[in-house]
Write a protein that binds this DNA or RNA. Structure first.
Lengths: 308, 308
DNA sequence: CCGGGGTATGCGTGGATGTCATGGCCTTCA
DNA sequence: TGAAGGCCATGACATCCACGCATACCCCGG
């Protein structure tokens, strides 16, 4: 079979795989078995006459040919979906709809704040959002499933990925990492914490291998992790309950619950964190530009709020 | 099956049908049986949830839904083909390639003349051309198989078709119909022919029901058609051989073979003929604009040549 | 060396898609 | 008015493809 009449299902499956990074995950998302997905990809590769995926022990990665096909597949699938919507008489996925992806932290303050103000200034723009991990966001951008994404970046601030075409990334803000501790804690009476005082504490960290999320990176001891949690509210409530301390990006300060105090850390290198606004290169549709502006404004606004 | 995963083959078939205007012709062009095409279309209509074609005794016509689907199908198929070309490492159907369609008469003077001059001034532009009947040209434009087409138009100069979106048509030139007769003929000594002198001649006309092509439209007698031919060279050689006379558009004057004289007709209403340059509405790619300019220039240039 | 994450593949079955042949409808022409 | 010839639809097949299931395989980490 020539590539010119590959199956639309195959293209759709391929896009999903590219976005999930795993045949198995894509299969689950599509309601197929892993086997079916594997075969679809195999067929597509046969049609393309080249390997589209590089098989790795932890999933798959796109080859050069794969990226080529992905570009077109995304366009094709979008086009067909547009046709389907128009046929159904639906509002043809308004040009005024923006799909925004974000990493968990941004959902607590930046996203809601920006969307509220955007809703006021440009009520005609619809924003659909979705939380994902950073790699998932990057893949979704490349798969054309997202128009724009908020991505966290830490030193040495490399590009989100090293594929081509490179993503366009604008640094929205750079703030330093801070520490959250119970308001009742003796150290909370000061306006800052000395890095030396961080020793000996119990930490509340992120799940899995993300232990690094939540524990101060410059610690000169092996941290004792008392709890792990993915959810910010849960983490902060654990802090409020005096069960441990954790790190938080400065942006979260404004939405920290009662009983928690957030302080900057003195001594040691300052731990900077950036929030990037990333998208595929190319002309920026007007609604996307509006959303970007709203996000920038929200960042500025948050500076005027008390920073612990 | 939802429309969202219709088959690419079906879309391709559909485009072909839209271009040919007939299931049977599309089948022949694609190497399928008419039955297969019929089923493909049926399946597509089932997926679309609407009739895409209006069945008529002489073929099919697009319904509103059909036009909608055609728009998207053309884009989808193009996109996939582009992917295929890129995969094959081919020059990705240069943006600098223009596909031009023309009706038979234009191929004898306008097209060659314009292409030569375009080739001199913009050698980087590739033009692929194709002769077709006027309705075929119009369908090909709508199916996205041609970028631009030269179309003949006669009074009352209606639009090439009455579908939406309307085609953009620019009148390149308007010339009057003339008569070709043997250089040796007594009437050929004058610089014009009086309409009264057209009586009693033997005519060389177009094939089939196109008798009108070749016989002077204002004749007040039933014409005697001695020969029918589709090819201009054949027609003109028949004229040169003294086997009859025929009508020719003024543009052809410059390329008429020896032994043939072309004269305007006096008396009676002047028979005007227009050549339209037609394309789908939308932004005009730069190479297309160049080609259009070259065609306009060729028209102007031909005015400076002797007009019999 | 086993368990758990990935992907590939043999096997059986059902559906989709071809061809062939036929039938219905319409127009044209003798 | 009947025969011919254009068009499309459809019933009866054959074939093939793509699915699910189960299993094999590979690699890594504890």
């Amino acid at each position: 079979m020539a590539f010119t009449d590959a199956s639309l299902v195959a293209l759709r499956v391929f896009r999903e795989v590219a976005e999930r990074g795993t045949l198995t995950a894509a299969a689950a998302a599509l309601g197929y078995t892993q086997s079916a997905v594997s075969r679809q990809i195999a067929a597509l590769e046969r049609a393309a006459g080249a390997a589209l995926l590089e098989r790795r022990h932890d999933g798959v990665r796109l080859t050069a040919a794969g990226r080529l096909v992905l570009r077109h597949a995304a366009a094709v699938v979008d086009q067909v979906d547009a046709a389907a919507r128009e046929l159904a008489g639906l509002p043809s996925e308004d040009e005024s709809t923006v799909r925004l992806g974000w990493f968990a932290t941004a959902g607590a303050w930046l996203v809601p704040q920006a969307l509220v103000s955007l809703g006021r200034s440009h009520p005609s723009i619809t924003v659909v959002t979705r939380e994902s991990s950073t790699p998932a966001l990057v893949r979704a951008l490349r798969a054309g499933t997202l128009d724009v994404a908020l991505i966290a970046s830490l030193p040495p601030f490399r590009a989100p990925d090293d594929e081509t075409p490179a993503l366009e990334a604008e640094a929205l803000v750079e703030r330093s990492l801070q520490v959250a501790l119970p308001a009742s804690h003796p150290l909370a009476r000061n306006d800052f914490i000395d890095i030396a005082d961080l020793r000996g504490h119990r930490w509340i960290a992120g799940p899995g291998d993300q232990l690094v999320m939540g524990v101060w990176p410059g610690l000169d001891e092996r941290p004792r992790v008392a709890h792990t949690a993915r959810d910010w509210l849960a983490k902060l409530q654990l802090v409020a309950a005096g069960l441990g301390i954790t790190t938080v990006p400065a942006g979260l300060v404004a939405v920290v619950p009662a009983g928690v105090r957030v302080l900057p850390v003195r001594g040691g290198p300052s731990e900077q964190r950036r929030i990037l606004l990333a998208r595929l290169p190319g002309p920026m549709p007007e609604p996307v530009a509006r959303l970007a502006a709203a996000l920038r404004a929200a960042v500025v606004e948050s500076w005027h709020q008390p920073i612990g």
